[in-house]
């Protein structure tokens, strides 16, 4: 039986309210090896800034994902809300 330790993180992402910004985040998150466990997005219509909260898990360090999301042009900032939750996933 293989044992795989997944670290679980909650990210808070601030982004310009632009076309496909959610698709960009989803694509990068999947491609860089993170599972999305939950997501919420809201737009402040006053300043056209979207706030996206996203729960992800991966064996990989969260810094790898943060750096890649930060590179997206429409992203204003990314931070980890919590970084100490671990879940264990077992596969045969």
């Amino acid at each position: 039986m293989n044992s795989m330790t997944l670290n679980k993180y909650q990210l808070i992402i601030m982004a310009d309210d632009k076309q496909v910004v959610l698709e960009r985040i989803l694509q990068v998150t999947r491609y860089r090896g993170f599972l999305i466990n939950g997501m919420n997005a809201e737009v402040n219509t006053g300043n056209n800034v979207a706030t996206i909260t996203m729960s992800v898990s991966s064996e990989r360090p969260i810094s790898l994902l943060i750096d890649q999301i930060n590179k997206l042009i429409d992203i204003k900032g990314v931070k980890v809300d919590n970084s100490d939750v671990q879940i264990k996933q077992h596969s045969a």
Partner: peptide, 8 residues
Amino acid sequence: IDTAEINK
């Protein structure tokens, strides 16, 4: 020049 390449 790319932060994402450091420690990748």
